[in-house]
């Protein structure tokens, strides 16, 4: 695979350039300082069946501040494996995007980060997920405690059928947080840049808001408990472009204080907002049921979009499939 094959994706570079300032921690001794100039790295175990590319080359996760480290993470539903052998490191206080076609397991993996898969009967997780070094699936870990630190925003806005105020206050009340509830609510709404929109109608039902406002309310609701990580599972897929833009702006502001992992169908969104991108694919088995998700490539977003090392990543980011 030669570098000049990779030019089709370069049009995306413009939008991702704005993020490159926050990419310093990627540069580690022994690893390529400049994407594309890859020295011969001794081949580790080949991650995907692509012989030409070494493991450390496609899974470029040498970061010194990981918030999550997964090792050989696999999830199955019943007896059917959904996603296999995902090993990557997610950096702190940055935005990491998971992209890939439907069914590639990106949502399944993100749901391991706050043990949301526990709620699905028959879901089984193998391998390890470490959060600040602690095994999230260790026997001494209470999944409820995990979710207090790691907030989540879902595909469809899912406010509770309560007032705007009560939606925000839900988390702090459940966790028994101390302090003035009014203040907690205001701060969360301000962080989600929703305060000015709703400060005069805090007692109104959240269902009276627009879809974009509802989703920002859900972000505010998650922020109210002061999480360390925010997981976003296709947060904009039900929203119009303007609402999407506001949420993306919000993510840029939030990464000062929280680590964000976002799953998205939308490659441009990944290019716009994220610092690092992981690309997943679906391995088509013999039948529909045998679809298995795999991690193909992971690295700094601008490198993934302008200089992908795996031919499948290149085809995906250049729009040939998916």
């Amino acid at each position: 695979m030669s570098d000049d094959e990779l030019t089709p994706a370069s049009t995306l570079r413009e939008v991702s350039d704005s993020d490159s300032s926050s990419s310093e921690p990627r540069d580690e001794p022994g690893l390529p300082a400049v994407p594309g100039e890859v020295p011969a790295v001794p081949a580790g175990q080949p991650h995907a069946p692509v012989p030409v590319v070494a493991h450390a080359d496609v899974i470029d996760d040498a970061i010194d501040n990981p918030v999550f480290i997964t090792e050989k993470l696999s999830v199955s539903y019943g007896t059917a494996p959904a996603v296999l052998d995902v090993s990557l490191r997610v950096p702190e206080k940055q935005i990491t995007a998971f992209i890939g076609p439907s069914g590639c397991g990106k949502s399944t993996i993100i749901r391991c980060f706050n043990r949301m898969n526990d709620l699905i009967p028959g879901a089984h997780v193998e391998g390890t997920v470490r959060y600040h070094g602690v095994d999230l699936y260790g026997s001494d870990i209470d999944s409820v405690q995990v979710r207090k630190r790691i907030g989540m925003v879902f595909q469809k806005p899912n406010p509770f059928p309560k007032s705007i105020y009560d939606n925000i206050a839900f988390g702090p009340k459940v966790l028994g947080m101390k302090g003035s509830m009014d203040q907690i609510v205001e701060e969360a709404l301000r962080r989600a840049s929703l305060w000015d929109d709703v400060k005069d109608r805090l007692k109104d039902n959240a269902f009276g808001m627009s879809g974009g406002q509802q989703q920002r309310l859900c972000i505010a609701r998650a922020l109210a408990t002061n999480p360390d990580v925010l997981l976003m599972d296709e947060p904009c897929s039900a929203l119009d472009p303007i609402s999407t833009g506001r949420i993306e702006d919000l993510m840029h502001e939030l990464k000062e204080t929280v680590s964000i992992v976002i799953v998205t169908h939308n490659m441009q969104q990944a290019a716009r907002v994220s610092d690092r991108t992981a690309f997943f694919i679906v391995d088509m088995g013999s039948s529909e049921e045998a679809r298995i998700g795999r991690l193909v490539e992971y690295g700094p977003t601008d490198r993934i979009f302008t200089n992908p090392h795996d031919i499948r990543t290149e085809e995906y980011v250049s729009g040939k499939f998916g």
Binding site: V144, R147, K148, V174, R221
Partner: peptide, 15 residues
């Protein structure tokens, strides 16, 4: 009751 409401609450650390 939609599963999404439960997920929202579990996601906030509710028991």
């Amino acid at each position: 009751v939609p599963q999404s409401l439960r997920e929202g609450a579990y996601g906030l650390g509710a028991s």
